[in-house]
């Protein structure tokens, strides 16, 4: 997928899932897979989910744009139920994440590995106007290190979620972060959790192995 360069689009515009600029770019359609029950990180989860459907969301559409400073993804998927509140102990929010390798060769299936970190931009419906920035080096290791670096915004309208997540192309940090200069070629992944199916943690649908991502070079060459 190409992340097109849209020089004039301000971050505020990109963060609006309904901004006209998004509709002028066509989406990439992605088939999503459920994570296998046998891969869940604890025996209790494996036993509880054996033979149960994991990965309620089977299709998603994604677009990416950057303005030379920030990269934004817009994710869209059909979901009959809006799970945005946690009215009870057994309710879970709809959620989505973009995964990016933070080191060459970082494995996606295991959410990274020691020495091979991945980053996740994580948005959830009960925290609609924000997103979390995570680093992971293996299943169950992800930790939120920042709640402002990644911006997020999403809404649910007539059976569809539209969610935008955006971050600066380059970020200084003591954490291992994906650096995304214009012209870069890297990979990305998508994960979606269906709250009404009690999906959370490793129970989710994901986009398979890394999908290619090219950041269109800026014509000015300003960012190299």
């Amino acid at each position: 997928m190409k992340a097109s360069y849209v020089s004039a689009a301000a971050l505020g515009t990109l963060l609006d899932p309904d901004a006209p600029i998004w509709s002028s770019h066509s989406p990439e359609r992605v088939s999503m897979l459920g994570t296998p029950a046998g891969m869940q990180p604890s025996a209790a989860i494996q036993v509880a989910w054996k033979g149960r459907k994991i990965g309620a969301i089977e299709r998603a559409e994604i677009k990416a744009l950057h303005n030379g400073e920030e990269l934004a993804f817009r994710l869209e998927w059909a979901d009959a139920s809006e799970d945005a509140e946690l009215p009870d102990n057994d309710s879970f929010p709809d959620a989505a994440a973009i995964l990016l390798p933070a080191a060459k060769g970082a494995p996606l299936m295991t959410m990274g590995a020691p020495e091979l970190p991945v980053n996740a931009w994580y948005w959830r419906a009960d925290e609609r106007e924000s997103a979390r920035h995570l680093v992971a080096t293996g299943l169950g290791t992800s930790h939120t290190f920042d709640r402002t670096g990644v911006r997020g915004q999403g809404h649910w309208k007539s059976g569809r979620w539209r969610v935008v997540m955006a971050r600066a192309l380059r970020m200084e940090s003591d954490q291992p972060l994906a650096q995304l200069p214009p012209g870069a070629e890297t990979g990305f992944g998508i994960a979606i959790w269906e709250g009404s199916s009690a999906e959370r943690g490793g129970l989710k649908s994901f986009s398979g192995n890394w999908l290619p991502l090219q950041l269109e070079p800026t014509t000015s060459g300003r960012n190299g």
């Binding site: 869940q40 169950g140 959370r200 943690g201």
Partner: peptide, 27 residues
């Protein structure tokens, strides 16, 4: 043993089981 994030800890010195609130993600 069920927690995928190892957010629940059993103290080796006294066996007390506690939730590490920084690691817990409410799953």
């Amino acid at each position: 043993e069920a927690c995928p994030r190892k957010a629940i800890e059993k103290n080796a010195d006294n066996g007390i089981v506690t939730v590490n609130e920084d690691r817990c993600r409410g799953y």
